[in-house]
């Protein structure tokens, strides 16, 4: 049977002294007794294997090995003296390295400038203080008629100051005062972004109102405020104040 011959011929190169299990050795031996084709195949394989083993590669000679060892020794000595190579790092292609660097820079900027930064609320609250003061001023501001008549007047009068008979401070002075008086929010932990900012703004507004409602007349420079007005204008202002009472 041909299929049996195929199975046996696959094991012929290892028969009888090769890497064959006892089961297959018995099978091959039994088949060879009855199959002349496989016997012929075994003879040819044995001849080829013997030819191969009878002609090993010739040794190149002692001089060859002296040269070989000398050259190898020099190369190994160079390797031994060379500093250890840096550990392999993940090498990204150039375009990815640029993109990665850009991303890292963007994230760093976002952290530094964004809402996560420690000083985020400080500049915001500092910015908003003059705005709040200006808004508070605007609420109490009279129509600008008097201002247009009085050309070089620096600041419009506020009703509270008008009632008291004194002129309100300039917005800049008010903002400076608020900046000094408002406690810095840095002491409080800024865990909530929006809440923290809002708290600071509310505090600033409250402080501004407090300041405006105070009768802190001593801080107002009345003389400098009316210095720019003419005698006629001063009279008119006085009559208005008296009418307002």
């Amino acid at each position: 049977m041909k299929w049996r011959c195929t199975l046996i011929q696959q094991r012929l190169p290892d028969y009888p002294d090769g890497d064959l299990s006892p089961f297959w050795k018995r099978q091959v031996a039994a088949h060879l007794e009855v199959c002349p084709e496989c016997r012929r195949e075994l003879e040819e394989i044995t001849r080829v294997v013997s030819l191969y083993q009878d002609h090993p590669l010739p040794d190149p000679g002692p001089e060859f090995w002296q040269d070989f060892n000398r050259e190898l020794h020099l190369k190994l000595a160079q390797v031994n003296q060379a500093p250890e190579a840096a550990p392999r790092r993940l090498r990204l292609p150039h375009y990815l390295m640029g993109a990665t660097a850009a991303m890292v820079a963007t994230l760093a900027l976002a952290v530094y400038l964004g809402p996560f930064s420690e000083t985020a609320s400080k500049p915001q609250s500092a910015k908003r203080q003059p705005e709040v003061a200006a808004r508070a001023m605007a609420l109490h501001r009279k129509p600008p008629q008097a201002r247009t008549a009085v050309a070089p007047a620096p600041a419009p009068p506020s009703p509270a100051a008008v009632k008291m008979g004194a002129l309100p401070p300039s917005p800049q002075a008010l903002a400076d005062k608020m900046a000094k008086s408002v406690a810095p929010p840095a002491e409080e932990p800024q865990y909530s972004l929006a809440a923290g900012t809002l708290n600071a703004n509310q505090k600033a507004a409250a402080e501004a109102e407090k300041l405006l409602s105070e009768d802190d007349v001593l801080d107002w420079d009345v003389d400098s405020a009316v210095a720019g007005l003419s005698r006629e204008q001063q009279q008119r202002l006085k009559s208005k104040l008296e009418a307002g009472r």
Binding site: L57, P60, W65, F68, E71, L72, K75, L76
Partner: peptide, 28 residues
């Protein structure tokens, strides 16, 4: 092991100079 490595390389590449180079590269 130099003879075994050299003979293996020589069987594969069939060139004594290349086989010598292969064997040295192997040990390196």
């Amino acid at each position: 092991y130099q003879r075994e490595i050299y003979h293996l390389a020589l069987r594969l590449v069939h060139d004594p100079e290349e086989a010598k180079d292969m064997a040295q590269q192997t040990f390196m």
